[in-house]
Amino acid sequence: MSVTIKRKTDLSGIASKLSIKVNGEKVTKIANEEVVNIDIDAESTLLRVTQFGTRSNQIEVKDGDVVEINTTKIYYIIFLFPFISLFVSNFLKDQPYTLNTFLMLFLGMLLILFLFEGYHLKKIDNKSSEKTIPQS
């Protein structure tokens, strides 16, 4: 019995692979735009992906399911924090306040990474996701 997992996360997290967890146990990793088949033993299994503390929702999968990994909107917003912090700290004239502001916003970004789901798993219909080639 197996489950197919497709990673469609665009440029987010492209430098590192996502860890695939089955029932809380790490089984393999998946790179950007990669397709992985994992074997499952039970009739239904809980699936989740993680990367540097960022996690996905957890879904129940069964034999033959096709799962797609997407990036959530909050994940993109999180990576605007360093730019926002640099912009805000630029207006502060006193150097200690500039560093403190940058550090507080950076720590806020890390906190959001751990509190919210950065990836979303969804089951897709394998037939609709494959491209059909017209026959001539």
Rank of each mutant, 00 (worst) to 15 (best):
M1A: 13
S2A: 14
S2I: 00
V3E: 10
T4E: 15
I5P: 00
K6W: 02
K6T: 04
K6H: 12
T9D: 09
D10W: 09
D10M: 11
G13M: 02
G13F: 02
G13V: 01
I14P: 01
I14Y: 12
A15D: 12
S16K: 15
K17S: 14
K17M: 10
L18R: 00
S19T: 11
I20S: 01
K21A: 14
V22H: 00
N23I: 07
G24P: 10
E25V: 14
E25F: 05
K26I: 12
K26R: 07
A31T: 04
E33T: 07
E33C: 02
E34T: 06
V36K: 15
V36H: 02
V36A: 04
N37W: 02
N37A: 13
D39P: 02
D39R: 09
I40H: 12
D41M: 06
E43D: 13
S44D: 13
T45A: 15
L46N: 14
L46P: 00
L47Y: 01
R48S: 15
V49R: 01
V49H: 00
T50F: 05
Q51E: 06
Q51V: 02
G53Q: 03
T54S: 15
T54V: 09
R55L: 02
S56I: 03
N57E: 04
N57A: 11
Q58I: 14
Q58T: 15
I59Q: 04
E60G: 05
E60F: 04
E60Y: 02
V61G: 03
K62T: 09
D63N: 15
D63K: 13
G64C: 06
D65T: 03
D65S: 14
V67A: 06
V67S: 06
E68Y: 01
I69L: 12
I69E: 00
N70M: 07
K73W: 07
I74R: 00
Y75L: 08
Y76P: 00
Y76D: 10
I78R: 01
F79D: 12
F79C: 06
F81G: 00
F81S: 10
F81Y: 13
P82M: 10
F83N: 07
F83H: 11
I84R: 09
I84G: 07
I84S: 11
S85Q: 07
S85W: 00
L86G: 10
L86Q: 06
F87W: 10
V88F: 13
S89Q: 12
N90S: 14
F91I: 03
L92E: 05
K93H: 08
D94N: 13
Y97I: 05
N100S: 12
N100G: 14
T101H: 03
L103S: 13
M104Q: 01
M104R: 01
L105P: 01
F106H: 07
G108D: 04
M109N: 08
L110C: 10
L111S: 13
F114L: 12
F114R: 12
F116C: 09
Y119N: 08
H120V: 03
H120L: 10
L121R: 06
K123T: 03
K123M: 06
K123W: 05
I124K: 12
I124G: 02
D125L: 03
D125T: 03
N126I: 05
N126P: 01
K127P: 00
S128Q: 08
S128V: 09
S128R: 07
S129W: 03
T132E: 10
Q135T: 09
S136P: 08
